[in-house]
């Protein structure tokens, strides 16, 4: 697990990138750990993306792809980028 300070720093760094609309870190139960968006949006995104990650993991398992490293969803607004780690999921909204 990453410590509080390191976590804040990396969130800040990510958030400072051009075009980044939001950065969220959520645990595997869909409960947000850290975010630079408002509480309500954070809750919704965390829950939905965690649910999607669960489904996506099942897909790659079925396909025998050997695990999932990263997930990108292209949208008219830009991108939703999802990095699933062991204990948490990093979500970045960009564009």
């Amino acid at each position: 697990m990453i410590g509080g300070k390191a976590l804040k720093d990396s969130l800040k760094r990510l958030g400072a990138h051009e075009g980044v609309r939001g950065v969220i870190i959520t645990n595997m139960e869909g409960l947000p750990i850290s975010s630079n968006l408002n509480a309500e949006t954070t809750e919704v995104i965390s829950a939905l993306v965690t649910s999607l990650v669960g489904k996506a993991k099942r897909v790659v398992d079925e396909l025998g792809e050997g695990g999932m490293n990263f997930l990108t969803i292209s949208t008219p607004k830009g991108e939703v980028m999802v990095a699933p780690e062991e204990d948490y999921i990093l979500i970045v909204l960009r564009g």
Binding site: T26, E29, G30, L31, P32, E43, A47, T50, G54
Partner: peptide, 9 residues
Amino acid sequence: EVNIGMIRL
């Protein structure tokens, strides 16, 4: 093991 966030919503 459940997605608590999703269940809450």
